[in-house]
Design a protein around this nucleic acid. Sequence first.
RNA 1: GGCGCAUUCGUCUAGUGGCCUAGGACACCGCCCUCUCAAGGCGGAGAUCAGGGGUUCGAAUCCCCUAUGCGCUACCA
Length: 490
Amino acid sequence: MTDRPVRTRYAPSPTGNPHVGNIRSALFSWAFARARGGQFVLRIEDTDRNRYVEGAVEAIMESLRWLGIDWDEGPDIGGPHGPYFQSERLPRYREAAELLMERGRAYRCFCTPERLDALRASQAAAKQPPGYDGLCLRIDPAESAARAKDEPHVIRFAMEREGVTVLHDVVRGEVVFENALQDDFVMLKSDGFPTYHLAVVVDDTAMAISHCIRGDEWISSAPKHIQLYEALGWEQPAWAHLPLILGPDHKKLSKRSGDTALLDYRERGYLPEAMLNFLAFLGWSLDDHTTIISAEELTRHFDLARVVPNPAVFDIERLNYLNGHYIRAMDEERWVRLVAEWADRGLPASIPRPLDEAVVRAAAPLLRERVTLLEEIPGLIAFLFTYDAPEYETALLAERVGDAATAVRVLDEALVRLDAIGESEWTTAAVEAALRGLEEPLGMKLRKFIPVLYVAVMGRPTGIPLFDSAAILGRERTLARLRAARARLG
RNA sequence: GGCGCAUUCGUCUAGUGGCCUAGGACACCGCCCUCUCAAGGCGGAGAUCAGGGGUUCGAAUCCCCUAUGCGCUACCA
C-alpha cells in the first residue's frame, strides 16, 4: 500500500477562491510528496457544472503559486496522466460504471428528483435513516437497458450491505463502518458526469496516486470509495484524513465564519512564507519546540505520522506574529520593494507618482519593526509625501504634556533650536542633538515632551522615529509644520 | 435522529506507562531597553491532561462508560 512511489494530488473543484482549509490540505499533500521525493499533481474536479465559477481555476493555481507550491503535472503543464480536468475524462468514468454494471455492482436508477425528495421527507418523518430504497435495483436488466435509451437516469453503486468496511487511516488508525448503514449512492449523474465518489477513485487510480490526503469532512464517505476500489479490483491508496480547520466560532471554516479565501490574506499584506509557516503547524508539528519553519525545511521534514487528529482553530494572532517575524527577517532589498509597492498602492491619488524613491528607501528601515501587515505601510509614511502635516485635532498637541501652555513652550523652544541648524547641517543627528538640548530649558525629559512634536510633524502622537522623519522631510517642511502647530495654539 | 471523528494552558501544540509537581509558541501581565509607537531582552500568570470508573508498584499516555463539540447524512464537492 505504501511501497509505491509517492504521488499525491490536490484536487479542488473550481467553485471559487480556494479557502485556507483547502489550501492547507494542498500544502500537506505537497510537502509529503516532496519529503518523500515523490510527485505532486494538480487535478481540477469540475464535475458539477452548476457550481463552476469563471476564473476559479486561475485562482486555484495563483493560490498555490503564491505559497510556492509547485506541481509536477496539472491542467496547465499537462503530464503523462492527463487530461487534468475531470470534465475531459468522461469516457473513463462511464467505462468504470459500465464495468460495475456488468459485475452486478451498479444499476440504473430512473427515480425522479421529486420521488427522491419525497422519499427523504418520509424517512425523516418516520425518523428513519435517509437513503435510497433500492426501488430501481429490482428492475430487470433487459428492461433497464431498454428504458435507458430514452429515459433520463443515473447510475447507482450497489453497496455491500453485509459486514463492515474498514478504513485504515494514517492519522486516525482503524475506522470501522457498518455496511448495513450504507447507501446506494449515485456515481454517474443523468448528465453523464460522475459524482466525486466515482471520479476520485477512477482518477486517483489512473494517476497512480499513492496517498489520498484530504480533509476530515470526507471520512464518512470513505467506505464508498473503499468499496468502489474493491468492486473494481483496484489497489487502494493510503488514506489520510486531515483534521478540519475551525473558525473562531469553532465551526468548520467557511465564508460565514470569517474571510477565508487564501488570496484575501495576500491582499491584506500577509507574506506567503508567514502563511505557509502558519498553515504548516495547523494540525502538524515538527517537534516539541519548533515554531518557525521555511518551505524548504517543511518539504524536507514533513511527515503524515506527525499529523494530529483533532481539529485546529484558526488563530489570526499567531499569523500576525509570524508576518511580523518574516518582515523583520527578510533582506533589505525585498523590504524596500515591498514598501514601495504598498505605498504606491495605498497612498492617496493626490500624491504625485512615481513616489520619491529616496524617501521610500529612507523610510523602509524605520517601518520594519512597526509593521505587522503590509497594508499598514501607507498610513505610517503618508506624512513624508506632503508639504503640510496630515489633518489632526489641535487638542492632540497638548494631550500628552497635559496643557496647551506647555505644548506652546515645547514648540517655541524647538523652533528656536531647530531654526539654528543650517540647511546643509540638517541631519538626523543634528535634529536629535537640538531636541535633546531642550530637556534643560524645558525642565522635563525628552520622552515627556516629544509627543508634541510627533503630532506637529506627522499628525499623530505615535509613528516612525521623529529625528529620522525630520531629516527625511528636510529643514523647510519640518519648520513649517512646527510653526503651523504653534499657530494653532494661538 | 443516525453514523463517524475529536477532547492537554484562551489558541496552536509537545507528550505513545516512570525524564511531567506537564515542555514550547501566540495572546495576556510585569520589568528592562527606549525620541513616540513598536521591536527586542528578561520574568510571570495560565492545563487537577473533558468527567467518572478501572488496569498497574506507577497513567495525560492502556481499557470501559458518560458528557460536550464538530463533521457527514444530495444527480455538491
